[in-house]
């Protein structure tokens, strides 16, 4: 699972931090930081975060398929 946040939209509402503290947090300047590839076990929480973001800055997408080696 991949999480992307459009930081040009983010207004630090914190709803994602409330919904999925394992993935999202704030730094000391109140700027959102997040785990880019959290484990799939957190998918429900990640999707809840995207659904409650007031500015719809969060996108959850499946992990990119493993590349053949």
């Amino acid at each position: 699972m991949q999480i992307t946040v459009d930081m040009t939209l983010c207004e630090s509402h914190g709803q994602c931090v409330f919904a999925a503290p394992e993935i999202f947090s704030f730094d000391d300047d109140d700027r959102l930081v997040h785990e880019a590839s959290p484990p799939d076990a957190l998918r429900d929480k990640a999707e809840k975060s995207a659904a409650v973001c007031p500015v719809r800055a969060i996108t959850v997408s499946p992990a990119s398929p493993p590349t053949a080696s």
Binding site: S12, H13, G14, V17, F18, P21, S25, F26, D28, D30
Partner: peptide, 11 residues
Amino acid sequence: VGRTGRLASYR
């Protein structure tokens, strides 16, 4: 204000 990170524990 400017401390949204601290709201999480209150919430």
